[in-house]
Amino acid sequence: MAEHNEQQFLSRVRRALGRSNRSGKPLTTPDLGFTDQIRSAIKRTRNRQDADFSALADILKTAAPEINLGVEFTDTADRMRSAMMARIEQADPEWGDKKTVTAWRHPLLERLELDAALSRLNVPLYYPPVAVSAADDFSNAECDEFKTRAAKATVGITAADFCLADTGTLVLRNRPDHPRIVSLLPSIHMAAMTMNQLLLDFTELYAILSDEFRQGMDTVTNAMTFVSGPSKTADIEATLVHGAHGPRQVCLFILRGE
């Protein structure tokens, strides 16, 4: 049924385009000569030195305030942790009486030793459950339980795949251990990353994604999200208000020198 539908639909489209119905022509994806641009963008990103990353950091510093994104640069993991703790201490719980934190399981976040620091503040920290094996899936109950925790959390901590300096955009890709609700449901979203994950702009990002995709990698994943600052709306008399549905604050912590 669906098969038949689709064929009829597509042959109507073909007819409208004035092509013969049984056009056996293989599909050619129109490529308006961008391949060179992709190549040069990739080369640029690969050859970046420390000084180039500092220049990107400067661009980010101007872009971030425009979209109300907080950015903090730190030199060590310890400093980054203290910076995060300072903000968590100030945060007020919004969706429950108790302040809680939820975070991705991620190597960079592990280095921050958040558990110990948060237990000193007496703030519970919830990680996503671990699947027993790669082929093992979560039950509905497990998914729901984590959803409830994330929905009550005051702060959600993620590790960005990239940050685009030009727009202050965080790129978050959906992978096991990296649930997307951690950057969505809590009142405050904190993201960690290292300097070398800075890119200039969308063109560089999409060039990298294109290139990896064409090599057969699952690079866009089944849910890739760009986050540029806190959730906002201007639907009431065009007045800007933060925290429409997503986090009302977003802060990015960048580890220098790595």
């Binding site: 996503p128 699947a131 998914c143 959803k147 096991p176 609700i181 089944n222």
Partner: peptide, 9 residues
């Protein structure tokens, strides 16, 4: 859709 091993979606 959500892939096995993912918690949301």
């Amino acid at each position: 859709p959500r892939a096995p091993g993912q918690l949301d979606g």
